[in-house]
């Protein structure tokens, strides 16, 4: 890291008296930060020790010391055992499909921001922003409660309307069904995140030099021409950074959303890696196997992170971590 050298040579340029002050304080500062770093270590690094469970046949309640050491057995079974391989592949497919849908959907906040910025009424713009960012601040449990209220078979509003309009005779079980599960999840994600996702782009657009638009208009460029040639290139850097972050988190799609929406019927398509690990580990008590799966996940995610970081360094000369 070239910056470390820079950090030390920086104070060298100032008077000697101040330099001594800083050297005396360099450990003091560290000691002040230490309690916090210890917390980071405890909650984020100490769990890494738990990876050892993946090499034992661990059952909750029995200490690790008396559990059987099985070496790479669990990893072998992930790849070797056809049932388990099938399960892991299914879960990987769910994870990647839903992440891919989210990546595809990541252009929608851009479009949202571009068209919102074309609005003339500042007041209307402000209200649209306030109303569309609101869903970002509610929990997934609440989103599920909304979904239940709007889409349930017997008393959901959507079914009620569809029946009254004569489109269907009987309620559709939107929630208790396994059709289009990935798409439904992506749509809920979109509902929750569209307005919030657009904020950064709206700011980026506001930062574009207005003279560019004036000049283009003088040259006879129409609205869509200016959008395509000025606005879009203006927000590309922002989009690119966010895209890289999405890629870095490609398989970290969390579990809360999928957990609250999961049921016996859609489980096949909704179980993402994290949820699968939770279901087999904490619910199914198969700790060791679940740990092995989550280790694989961590390894893949760190590779993706380095890939995204490398891309970022290469293309914009700045790292994302």
């Amino acid at each position: 890291m070239p910056n470390t050298i820079q950090a030390q040579s920086g104070p060298g340029a100032v008077p000697v008296k101040k330099r001594a002050f800083e050297i005396r304080n360099k450990y003091k500062l560290f000691l002040m930060a230490l309690p916090f770093l210890v917390l980071v270590f405890i909650f984020s690094y100490m769990p890494l020790y738990g990876w050892t469970y993946a090499f034992y046949n661990f059952r909750p309640g029995i200490p690790l010391a008396v559990s059987d050491f099985v070496g790479l057995e669990w990893f072998r079974s992930i790849f070797g055992n056809p049932t388990q391989r099938g399960e892991v592949l299914r879960v990987m497919r769910n994870t990647m499909s839903m992440s891919s849908l989210n990546i595809l959907a990541s252009v929608l906040p851009v479009i949202f921001a571009i068209f919102l910025s074309e609005m003339r009424s500042q007041r209307f713009k402000k209200y649209v922003q306030i109303l569309t960012t609101l869903p970002n601040f509610i929990s997934w449990v609440l989103v599920y409660s909304f979904a239940f209220m709007l889409f349930s078979v017997d008393n959901g509003l959507v079914n009620h309307i569809l029946i009254n309009l004569g489109f269907i005779d009987k309620g559709i079980g939107f929630l208790a069904s396994d059709s289009h599960t990935w798409l439904k999840m992506a749509l809920w994600d979109l509902w929750k995140g569209l307005g919030w996702g657009a904020i950064l782009y709206i700011a980026a657009i506001a930062g574009i030099d207005q003279e560019l638009y004036e000049a283009a208009r003088v040259d006879g460029a129409g609205r869509f021409r200016t959008i395509w040639n000025i606005t879009v290139p203006g927000i590309m850097p922002t989009y690119f950074v966010l895209l890289l972050l999405t890629i870095a988190n490609f398989i970290n799609n969390g579990l809360e959303q999928y957990f609250v929406f999961q049921n016996a019927i859609n489980k096949n398509h909704i179980e993402v890696l994290d949820l699968y690990v939770y279901n087999t580990g904490l619910v199914g008590n198969n700790f060791s196997f679940a740990t092995a799966v989550s280790m694989l996940k961590s390894v893949i995610s760190i590779i993706l992170l380095f890939f995204a970081n490398g891309m970022s360094k290469l293309l914009r000369g700045e790292s994302i971590i």
Binding site: L29, P47, S298, L305
Partner: peptide, 30 residues
């Protein structure tokens, strides 16, 4: 504070936890 001992390293030590974690089970066991 530029003069903190190992500032860059500790900062990274912290920031990387935003992207990387050991997983649910080891975390739960911890």
């Amino acid at each position: 504070k530029q003069e903190m001992w190992g500032r860059k390293v500790w900062y990274r030590f912290l920031v990387i936890t935003m992207y990387f974690n050991a997983g649910i089970i080891p975390w739960y066991m911890t």
